[in-house]
């Protein structure tokens, strides 16, 4: 299945989906040294985002989250790409600075954890694609 969305941060990635039905708070929610989700009672608590294509509706919580998204990218403990229903400023900033391919406007209910995804977010196009392989 091929879905079209809006390019937030350009790049391409292929990998396994890790889907959160709930918003993610990066600051205090993910340990950037390891990539492990540490927010208590979060659906992804204890899971590792490293090397995954992280799929979630939108970010929540502290705006320091941008540095966490950036740090996850720089330390290579973060996701290969991000797919959102709606990307807000926290993730967009971190993703652009950290060169994490990011697309939003995707119906994330169609994606299941473990699905193999291909994300294409072209540099000079507003429209990107997410393909379930």
């Amino acid at each position: 299945m091929l879905m079209h969305g809006r390019v937030i941060s350009p790049g391409e990635a292929e990998g396994e989906a890790l889907v959160s039905p709930e918003p993610i708070g990066f600051y205090g929610g993910i340990d950037y040294m390891t990539g492990i989700v540490i927010e208590k009672d979060h659906p992804l608590e204890g899971q590792n985002v490293q090397g995954k294509i992280l799929v979630f509706p939108n970010a929540k919580g502290s705006t320091v989250g941008s540095y966490v998204v950036y740090a996850l990218a720089k330390k290579e403990t973060g996701p290969l790409a991000i797919i959102n229903a709606q990307t807000e400023m926290i993730v967009a900033t971190g993703a652009i600075l950290g060169d994490v391919p990011t697309i939003d406007g995707i119906d994330i209910n169609k994606i299941k954890t473990g699905d193999r995804l291909r994300v294409v977010a072209p540099l000079n196009d507003r429209v990107g694609t997410v393909e379930i392989l």
Binding site: Y27, Y32, T63, Y67, A71
Partner: peptide, 15 residues
């Protein structure tokens, strides 16, 4: 925001 060393860590400090 992003002032505490605990929040930004070495990546933020270097940035």
């Amino acid at each position: 925001a992003g002032v505490s060393y605990k929040s930004v860590g070495d990546p933020g400090l270097e940035f």
